[in-house]
Amino acid sequence: MSKRQLKTALRQEGVVPIRMTRRAKRDMFAFLGFTFPNFFLLGVFVFWPILYSLYLSFFKWNMIAPKKTFIGLDNFQTMFNDPVFWLVTKNTLILAFFTVVVKMAIALGLALALNKNVKGRSVYRAIIFSPTFTTSVAVAMVWGWIFNPNFGLLRVFMRPFGIPPLDWLESVTHSLPAVIIVLIWSGIGYDMVLFLAGLKNISLEIYDAALVDGVSPWQNFWYITFPLLSPTTFFLTITGFIGALKAFDIVAIMTDGGPLNTSNVIVHFLYQNAFQWFKTGYASALALILFVIIMAITLVQNRLSRRWVHY
């Protein structure tokens, strides 16, 4: 056996790695070249920030001073002892829960109605979906004006019920519900469109079979439609919840988190700490908490989707 034959044999046996062919090499360089811009930017602006946030969370720093002061876990300790942090976390969870549940319930009802091949279906759909793409700053502006206690539109609808004029956005009890109402208004269309797509995927034969068995419409919904929609429901619950945890625009413009932080949420509190009060370390600790919560939800989603979702 010549040296060359030996080499070939060894490669085939996997003892020596097979050398790349010219084509494989060319493909490798092409692959790396094609994906480089994306991975470079993801690395700098998405992955690196996690490590850097972790690093910053151990420091006291005002973002301008050249020196950062190492303070260990003080930022986390301050955070857990800060009543505002707990209030903001509670607000965020309340906001996420009510926004997601109410929005999905209404969206499902509308999707079921639209799925009946009604006349003017595409017009209804286009209008109900339109807030999804409407600039959130403008949405917050018009709703701020709707909630105006003296001349706002809402007062018109409250008056017949004898509800006295109320300054929603300045009220410690009503500012968070006001934000939730706006988020529901903006989000119904998206959920409705996804429910409609989910409904389209349910085969009509199942309903035919149910008709033969004399199933009532209510049973139809609870035993056929709702279980078969579970992939969509699950997807919307998770993405809606995560999306609501990141709420910022509407809060920042309508209430600025006030009054007395009663409508403040995590991302807005993070923004205030980082860019208004320059407590960079504390804000980084907040960012990490948000990151951990969202990762936990994502992991739970991966686990649960296998058990809950009926395909």
């Binding site: 995560i242 993070l270 960079t280 960012a287 990151f291």
Partner: peptide
């Protein structure tokens, strides 16, 4: 990368 919330990156990206 899709799972990482962009809000986490605000401060690092600003820096």
């Amino acid at each position: 990368a899709m799972m990482i919330p962009g809000q986490i990156a605000l401060i690092p990206n600003y820096v």
